[in-house]
């Protein structure tokens, strides 16, 4: 079971790298769906192992909102964006970005290292560093990408990372908190999706990185 979870975790961090390095929007969105499925798989494995009913709920909620509802929502709101065949513009080139992302993952591991020494099951040892890596690399993706939808996927990746860590370290959170968090992620996707559509209509582009009329002189 532990090895299966480690496999899911390893694939998860690969999808996170993909969010930084992939050149096309539709590929990033597919990766995000895969990432969410892997999160659900990990939650399922942990649920079976610890016998916690909450984790099954998390797995179900993750599949329902992140793998089905959010992609559907984004397709409805932003289909022209998703099917754009152009390359995503970024601040640094892709190899450099990936190298920095790898460095950040190692950094994330060392930030949680003191916690692993105090209390850790085998699952926490896998999920916490990987989740933390997802958060840090997701934040990096937001700063690197100059377009709206990839930035949104960066935020959602950060949330996924937090949940990846959360299912191992806080498996008994009240169910209402998990429900509310799933709802919250859905609202993030809805609000940013709507906002992106409005920016596209009003400004004619979704390269939010190029919007720089507001700054200090």
């Amino acid at each position: 079971m532990n090895q299966l979870n480690a496999l899911a975790g390893g694939l998860f961090i690969l999808t996170v790298f993909g969010i930084v390095g992939l050149r096309q929007v539709i590929g990033c969105l597919r990766l995000f769906v895969m990432q969410s499925v892997l999160l659900a798989v990990s939650a399922l494995i942990l649920g079976i192992e610890t016998g916690s009913i909450h984790l099954f709920a998390v797995a179900g909620l993750t599949i329902g909102t992140k793998a089905l509802l959010i992609p559907w929502l984004l397709y409805r709101l932003l289909s022209h964006e998703i099917h754009a065949r152009r390359e995503i513009r970024q601040v640094l080139n892709i190899p450099t970005s990936l190298l920095i992302a790898a460095g950040l993952t190692i950094f994330a591991y060392f930030t949680v290292r003191p916690l692993l020494d105090i209390n850790s099951s085998a699952f926490i040892r896998v999920n916490l560093p990987i989740g933390m890596g997802g958060i840090v690399v997701g934040a990096f993706a937001i700063t690197m990408r100059r377009e709206a939808l990839p930035q949104l996927l960066g935020i959602l990746t950060m949330e996924n990372g937090a949940f990846m860590a959360g299912i191992s370290i806080a498996p008994n959170l009240p169910l209402i908190a998990e429900l509310a968090a799933a709802f919250d992620v859905l609202i993030i996707a809805l609000v940013t999706g709507l906002l992106t559509r409005r920016i596209h209509r009003r400004v004619g582009t979704t390269r939010v990185g190029d919007m720089a009329s507001l700054k200090e002189e």
Binding site: I155, M158, I188, V208, M211, S213, L214
Partner: peptide, 22 residues
């Protein structure tokens, strides 16, 4: 300008919220 401000607002604070969540 208002939409640019709204975008920066939502992206940066959601990024912060993810750090706060962990």
């Amino acid at each position: 300008e208002a939409l640019e401000a709204a975008w920066k607002y939502v992206v940066l604070t959601c990024m912060g919220a993810a750090f706060a969540l962990i």
